[in-house]
Design a protein around this nucleic acid. Structure first.
Length: 506
DNA sequence: TTCCGACAGTGGGGTCGCAAT
DNA sequence: ATTGCGACCCCACTATCGGAA
């Protein structure tokens, strides 16, 4: 298939807001793909590169853009091969060679093709169609039920191989995709609720302690153990403690879901940054263990010795899990239908330094990749009244608005403000309209991207916690900050202080 | 007809490894 | 040695479409 066909479809997909129309456009092109390129075309249509790492990012892409070719010439498969060359050179010290490859590729692309490939390489195609539309389109093009496609994607972990199987072999191809121990599947995700009562539905539920660590999917096949993150990156070499724990399980084939976290000597959790740093670090097993020991807590069992457990209700999966793993490797949890009891568990968990709870329906199967009602997380929420120091121009649908605000805490010592981070979250279109006008009035400077304002507007901010920061002058930053409301009943000299913020860090 | 679940988009801070400076 | 970049860890929230109720 010619790349320009794909680019033309992408343009049409972007042009319509109808999802059914997007789906039909994608399905039509999928049906045109040659059998051997179906997976590749599917991935490209969803804005995904088969190569996870290319070494080419936003910065490199904006640095150079050669003159475009007058006419389209490249096949999708040719583009894939040339991007593969780039990816093969990533991390090999040949950035000059990679830039050269990028230049010659772009010189062979028309203007529209260049923009499309830039979207692919940067991961920001923004055509209003991604995995969800692709999934529906695969079902339409292969004439198979969407639910079967969804299930296959969950089991395969990625969409492209499912598209390949469905478009070449239809229902029979889909049916051949199963949970394969040793190969990661998409993890089940949780929705969220503002408090414990909102997460309960009157029936008994299991409340798991929510640990602020790294999600781990563990596979054991005979002597072989492999570990994967939420995005299915393999991290086996980085977590020798977890490998040892899983290898010791007295079963031949096991697939587990859980979380690893660094605990202090007193058993309280370390800040997320400590666990994150350890998990991102390479080194010898001995050095890794010695640097920051990790503790593993499993909360689900997906497969055991040839038996898939995904469709069993949680109650049964958890009971099988509890029989399998050592008690101290099982996530602390409880079952209740009583609101007060659940509230108490939540309060104790937070008091012990943990992130919150995940409320799980006892009858829910393991539905990977969906943020449904099966699992709901509840976390405490902090708030502060801060002052807006600057605003950044938005992009995409926020192009004409001032969007991302810079947040400052009052510093009584200097009479000024200390920046703590930024946020673009929690704003409705109405808020965006209002703040665009308001901050234009308060503007003192504009560098084309950031508009600096007189520090007068107070905003109430919700956030999950305070973390150590090397970026911001106060040495602290807010985690997951979002706007609750603008406050016109408070002036900037009534805003919360940097001392208030530091006190939250303890 | 109204409601609500699922998606896509719009970005946040921190950390590592690697290459260039 | 330091800095910039890419990639990945954690992620919240709103608007919209279209099927469910």
């Amino acid at each position: 298939m010619q790349l320009h066909r794909l680019v033309e479809t992408s343009r049409e997909v972007t042009a319509t807001s109808s999802r059914t129309a997007k789906t039909t456009l994608v399905a039509t092109l999928l049906a045109e793909a040659e059998p051997q390129e179906a997976g590749l075309v599917a991935a490209y249509l969803a804005g995904v590169l088969p190569q996870r790492r290319t070494g080419i990012g936003w910065r490199t892409l904006s640095a150079e853009r050669p003159a475009a070719a007058a006419r389209p010439t490249l096949e999708v498969a040719q583009v894939d091969r040339r991007i593969q060359e780039l990816a093969d050179l990533a991390g090999s010290g040949s950035s000059g060679r990679r830039r050269e490859l990028l230049r010659t590729l772009y010189a062979d692309l028309t203007d529209a093709e260049q923009r499309y490939v830039t979207g692919l390489l940067s991961g920001e195609l923004r055509q209003g169609a991604s995995d969800g539309v692709l999934l529906a389109a695969i079902a339409q093009a292969a004439d198979v039920p969407a639910a079967d496609v969804r299930r296959a994607v969950m089991l395969a972990g990625f969409t492209a191989p499912v598209a390949q199987a469905a478009l070449t072999d239809g229902a029979a191809g889909l049916a051949r995709i199963s949970l394969e121990p040793g190969r990661p599947l998409r993890p089940m995700l949780a929705g969220s609720a503002p408090d414990v009562p909102a997460a309960l539905d009157g029936t008994p539920v299991r409340l798991d302690r929510k640990l602020d660590g790294i999600r781990i999917q563990a596979h054991k096949v005979g002597e072989d153990v492999r570990l994967f993150t939420r995005s299915l990156e393999e991290v086996t070499e980085r977590l020798p403690e977890v490998v040892e724990l899983v290898a010791a399980l007295p079963h031949d084939t096991v697939v587990l879901d859980g979380e690893v976290i660094a605990l202090a000597a007193d058993g309280r959790p370390e800040p997320f940054q400590v666990t994150g740093s350890r998990t991102a670090s390479a080194g010898s097993p001995e050095a890794l263990r010695a640097s920051t020991p990790l503790t593993t807590f499993f909360f689900d069992l997906l497969h055991l010795d040839g038996e898939d457990l995904l469709d069993l209700p949680l109650a049964q999966r958890f009971s099988r899990l509890a029989d399998l793993v050592p008690p101290d490797a099982l996530v602390p949890s409880m079952v209740t239908d009583d609101t007060e009891e659940a509230q108490r568990f939540f309060a104790e968990t937070v008091e012990a330094g943990h992130e919150g709870v995940v409320v799980k329906r006892l009858d829910a199967p393991y539905a990977a990749g969906r943020r449904g009602a099966g699992w709901v997380k509840v976390k405490p929420r902090h708030t502060l009244d801060l002052v807006v120091l600057a605003v950044e121009r938005g992009s995409g649908r926020r192009r004409d608005w001032l969007s991302n605000i810079h947040l400052g805490a009052r510093d009584p010592d200097t009479g000024g403000f200390v920046m703590l981070g930024k946020t673009f979250k929690g704003m409705t279109d109405e808020t965006l309209r209002w703040q665009t006008e308001r901050f234009r009035e308060l503007a003192t400077d504009d560098d084309g991207w950031v508009v600096t304002v007189r520090p007068e507007q107070v905003v109430e901010i919700a956030f999950d916690g305070v973390q150590r920061s090397s970026r911001y002058p106060g040495g602290v930053a807010l985690r997951f900050a979002r706007v609750l409301r603008y406050r016109d009943d408070k002036s900037a000299d009534e805003a919360d202080t940097i001392a208030d913020v530091r006190a939250l860090r303890g």
